[in-house]
Write a protein that binds this DNA or RNA. Sequence first.
DNA 1: GTTCATTTGTTCTCATGGCGCACAAATCCT
DNA 2: AGGATTTGTGCGCCATGAGAACAAATGAAC
Lengths: 313, 313
Amino acid sequence: MRTNELLPLLPDLAVLVDVVEAGSFSAAARLQGSTPSAVSRQMARLEAALGLTLLERSTRRLRLTSGGQEVVRHARSMLDAARAACDGAARHASTVAGRVRLAAPKAALRQIIHPQLPALLQTYPQLTLELQVSDQPADLIADGVDIALRLGDPPAGYVARPFMVVRTKLYAAPAYLAEHGTPQHPSELVRHSCLHLAEQAGDDEWCAVRDNERVVVNVRGRYASNHSEMRREAAEWGMGIASLPDFTARQALAAGTLVAVLPAWQLLGRYQGTSWLVYHADRYRAARVRAVVDFLLGVATQQGYGAASLPAG
Amino acid sequence: MRTNELLPLLPDLAVLVDVVEAGSFSAAARLQGSTPSAVSRQMARLEAALGLTLLERSTRRLRLTSGGQEVVRHARSMLDAARAACDGAARHASTVAGRVRLAAPKAALRQIIHPQLPALLQTYPQLTLELQVSDQPADLIADGVDIALRLGDPPAGYVARPFMVVRTKLYAAPAYLAEHGTPQHPSELVRHSCLHLAEQAGDDEWCAVRDNERVVVNVRGRYASNHSEMRREAAEWGMGIASLPDFTARQALAAGTLVAVLPAWQLLGRYQGTSWLVYHADRYRAARVRAVVDFLLGVATQQGYGAASLPAG
DNA sequence: GTTCATTTGTTCTCATGGCGCACAAATCCT
DNA sequence: AGGATTTGTGCGCCATGAGAACAAATGAAC
């Protein structure tokens, strides 16, 4: 029998098992929350489809035929297998195991996520994490990405949890500032060596804002790079004042190799705003994806990136 | 998971197996005679219900998740068991085996059906036949009667196949007629010893008919019984002219112990008309019931009871 | 790199099959 | 004999799932 001929019989076979176990149509209907007439018709349809009387019945009496006994035996197996399928699905859905693919910009991966891997993998011994550097907006279907860290507006159709707020700020080595003085206002930056992005035209025009104040400064420097790690190292070497996403400067600030310059100000450009953890909602909520998302959100809160109180996207 | 939560998932689990075996939604849809969008939605519903992604897919790529592999394993077992149930049903429906319950009036059982049992049971070695003497109209549900032999109008809602035409005729022993003369007309019966029914008032009033002629005669006899076999034996003993259903006199006629009296006439009463084989149509057509019905109809034709050419009820 | 064939997935419309309700007929128990 | 409860049927309704149309995506071929 081809599957599509079989398909409509499957629920009725299951109802047959219920009927036999309950002892009557009425009792089976009560168990299922349906009605005796519905059960009666289900049995009649099944018998018609199989070309065999399964149950001999009158009011108050119900008895399986010999053919019915054989069919019920197989129908019980069918039901047991279906229950096993659902139980297996439930177990899989609730076990933190398997592979999670996380795509994030390199800087965030390196500075924030990468250092947390030992703790995450120790917490979930059956978890496999695949990190993908992705500075372009990744599509979650592509290469089976489960979670993406996305700066800026989250895409429609996904769940987006706020992870951190990113600001671009200025930093310099203490030695450089000792030699060249510490600027008190952005306008003074014109007299300093400024390490900027040089990624596209206009990157040497810094737009600094504080409260209601906004200053545009054309800066110069002997070094520029769109690689924030290289700019940070150059600043640590005393080559000038570097613009950096604030989270990338954290370790150097803690080590004392950089200090914040004009800390009340931030630069506006293409790298500010909220970073979101983005994942599918209507596909599934596998335990492993949820576990990784929750872990990372905990890290952000614990380390004070200050986005956890923002509403979800 | 309770059965009624499981019921709507069963066809979708079966479709999942088809999808995996076909390799894509589109191929599975073609196999099933449905559409890719229907299959897509079936898989989406199943994943939503199970809370687990079963298939990772994009256009042109389809891959089971690890949870999906486990679910599919069980779903295949489910499908195999369902197919076994249907195959078992098909085998039962086509094997002449098991019990058939036949209810019939005693005379017909004894004279016509009982003598055929050896041939029937030899033809179908796995068949069990239960004969029930039933002079009252049996209901087929009562005690699980499969086939009833019914004289007169068949009940509504059943299939009725004409089995034989029953007439009540007159018979006497040759020795009785030699001593008392052979009546040439029903009116002469008043001068003969007549063995009648004595089952209810009026049974001693015989109504004889021939073509358009109808004669009513009040008869007397030294013996009466509602047991046709006893009346037949009394007639064979020379005690008089007996009224008998014609099929009950066949053997005595063949043996020469009885001869027909006024053979062109028949008596009207409660025992004439067509006898029908009656059985359920809308319940099932199990092979064993069909086999018994066909066998008996064959017997009727072979032995010339003359009803096979009548239309079904 | 572009085009094409074919995939998956979504929206909209609608047909239909199955269900609930009401009730008849039957049956077993008291 | 009556009552409680069963199975089964007719009728009306409606929830739901499918088909059609189409968008977006993708891998192969050129």
